[in-house]
Design a protein around this nucleic acid. Structure first.
Lengths: 128, 128
DNA sequence: CTTGACCTTCCACTTGCTGGAACCTTTATA
DNA sequence: TATAAAGGTTCCAGCAAGTGGAAGGTCAAG
């Protein structure tokens, strides 16, 4: 399989796949023309990575998860710990954004948004 | 005022203040010793930037907001548009994170997290 | 007079890709 | 058969928004 097809089937851009090779996630064989030649296993790995990234796991966490995925003797506790950590991180980010949202939506709601210069948004940002 | 005091009073790290000078947000004078010498106006600007960044505005948006802040003839509509765009962006991020959170929290909840290898998290990531 | 706290600049690194240039190979079409 | 389009290759640069660290200058206190 050439990179284009893998890209289509995995949903990842070809650029990203090359990058994932760079950082050691996959190691496709090479044809005589120098083209990468991916197998089904590579495709499966890349799809795995795409989903893990889609759930917000960092590249390093993906590395760990991939290793656990391929380790038949893993303990699910190890997987769960990584996932729980990511979940906590996501919760923290949501909380941060909710806090911003709270302040900002209030400010936006109280700004007239007309041609006059008076603006509660700037007043808030510029408060002493 | 030296950078240390400005850092303390603005809540921004000295490194960040130097960076903000680099990108043209402030232009402190220099003493004979080469030290930056900040005035109250600089401090106020930096605090403004700190709050704007804290509400999730990008550096470029901060630039726009700062210009509007200093423009007595501004229209609040211009401020509101920038803020509304940021609010939309925040909402999009929250939605993305909520979606991740939904899937991930379900997976975490169903994972035994013990010494056995069976793991719904990896099963989901590795699904065909 | 030395110690330690500040200050300076400059360069590299972070995360996770993405864009583009310059070039080669394969495939489809005139 | 010539050529053009569509794929592939490598490598370098850049994004956001700083952060860390090295190497060095300066200032106040003991």
């Amino acid at each position: 399989m050439n990179i284009g097809e893998v890209a289509k089937r995995s949903g990842l851009p070809a650029k990203t796949i090359r990058y994932y090779e760079d950082i050691g996630f996959v190691t496709p064989a090479r044809g005589d023309n120098g083209y990468r030649s991916f197998g089904e296993k590579d495709l499966h790995k890349l799809a795995f990575l795409g989903r893990a990234r889609g759930l917000g796991f960092s590249i390093e966490d993906c590395r760990t998860l991939l290793a656990l995925y391929e380790d038949q003797g893993r303990a699910s506790a190890d997987v769960k710990r990584v996932a729980q950590k990511n979940l906590n991180e996501i919760d923290r980010k949501i909380a941060d954004l909710q806090a911003m949202r709270g302040t900002l939506s209030h400010l936006v709601a109280t700004c007239a948004g007309d041609g006059r210069p008076d603006c509660p948004i700037l007043e808030d940002l510029g408060r002493r």
